[in-house]
Structures are given as C-alpha cells and as structure tokens.
C-alpha cells in the first residue's frame, strides 16, 4: 500500500497549524464580509438615487470590481500603493481592504436589486405618512429587503472564504502556505505527503463552505 502521507498531519502540532492557517483565512473573510455588508447597504441605497454623477460613479466602480481579478487588486494595494505612497501596510490589512472593496460592490448590487424589487407604492405610502428619507428606508424599505438579502449575504461569505485563499500570494501564511511548509519539512520521511495534505486542505475548505452554502440555499427556498 502506497504511503499517502496523511500520517504527517498527526505529527506534532501539524494539524493544529493547518487549522490555524484556515482560521486566518476565515478571519480575514469574516471581517471583510462585515465591512462589505455595512458599506453595501449604504451603497445600495445610493445606487437607486437618480443622481447622474452618483450613477456614473457606481457604474464605473462595479465594472472595475467585476472585471479586475481579485489577485490584481491585491497586488495593486499591497505592492503598488505601498510603493507610490510610501506607507507601511501589513498584508492582512491589504487583504481586508481589497476584499471589502470587492464585497461592498457585490453587496451594493444585491441591495440595489432588492430595493428595486420593492413595489413603488411602499415608497409612496411612506412619503404620504410624512416620513423623511432615512426614516422611510429604516422603517419601511429595509425590513422588507432583509429576507431577500440574508441568503445572498451568506452566499457572499462562502465566496469570500474561497477567494481569501489568494492571500497566500501576498505572503500571508494561511492554510495552503502551512500545507506547503508541512510538505517541505517532511520531504525526506514522507515524500508522498503532498497528496494527503492537499487532499485534507481540499476537504477542509469544503467542510467550511458547504454547510454555509447549504444554509443559504435552504433559507432562500424557505423565504421565497
């Protein structure tokens, strides 16, 4: 029987290190998702405004986010801006900035879609009752969009977790990097470790994202 190197994971604290790496990726994505949801709610409301300047601004922003790979954005923020402005930016902050920038656009677009789907009479009735714009959004419109938005935001979490695997490229030691380190460290004793370790990483990602996306699917079906 071929030794596939799963045993390497149980030497010392290897498995804990792997989980620690995963936690770093998950933490970055959770922080970014929180920022994205808050920024996205505000932006979604602004996107529905008829102001032409705002419209052009958000259109360009969305298009940039949709076209540029996240890896390019990471490189621009981590290597580009630090070079141009001469500031000191830790890789983790750079990652949070990029993923929030990306997530806020995605979320904003979802919020916009949800707001548009609310029938116009809701807005008119709120205005007829003498509510100001913030009151109207806070008490009438947003509560109605929440049901549509919750499954979509949960989906955003899984997408965010999947995308954070890219942070390895700007030098953050997350789960893939730890996996590589473990494989390299055990190259002599267990030359086939790459199979076992990468298979475990594959499964770990699946075990995190799958329940979350199932939950989103379930809520979407139940609340539709």
């Amino acid at each position: 029987m071929l030794n596939l190197g799963i045993d390497v994971l149980f030497k010392g604290t290897n498995f804990l290190r792997l989980l620690g790496g995963l936690w770093i990726a998950v933490r970055i994505s959770l922080i970014s998702v929180m920022i994205s949801i808050i920024a996205g709610l505000v932006m979604g409301m602004l996107m529905t405004s008829p102001n032409v300047v705002l419209k052009i601004f958000f259109r360009t922003y969305l298009e940039i986010v949709r076209i540029m790979p996240q890896m390019v954005l990471l490189f621009i923020v981590y290597f580009g801006t630090t070079r141009v402005f001469g500031w000191d930016l830790s890789a983790e902050y750079a990652a949070v900035i990029v993923f929030s920038f990306w997530g806020a656009a995605e979320m904003g677009d979802l919020v916009r879609g949800a707001l548009i789907s609310i029938p116009g009479i809701q807005y008119e009735s709120a205005q007829a009752l003498g509510m100001t714009r913030p009151q109207m959004y806070l008490y009438v419109i947003l509560p109605q969009t929440v049901r549509r938005l919750i499954p979509l935001s949960i989906n955003l979490i899984t997408r965010m977790i999947k995308t954070t695997s890219l942070v390895m490229m700007i030098g953050i030691v997350e789960v893939l990097k730890v996996a590589q380190q473990i494989i390299e460290a055990n190259r002599r004793t267990s030359p086939n470790a790459a199979f076992g370790v990468f298979a475990v990483v594959f499964l770990l990602y699946f075990l995190i994202c799958w329940p979350v996306s199932r939950l989103a699917g379930y809520l979407e079906k139940r609340w539709s």
Partner: peptide, 16 residues
C-alpha cells in the same frame, strides 16, 4: 463549487 480554484489546482498539480 465549495472549494477555491487555487486549492483544486494545487491538488491536480502537486498531489496527483
């Protein structure tokens, strides 16, 4: 759908 492409590529390229 629930794993990143990066991990899939690593599996195909380094593990297989």
């Amino acid at each position: 759908r629930n794993t990143p492409l990066l991990v899939q590529l690593f599996f195909l390229y380094f593990a297989l």
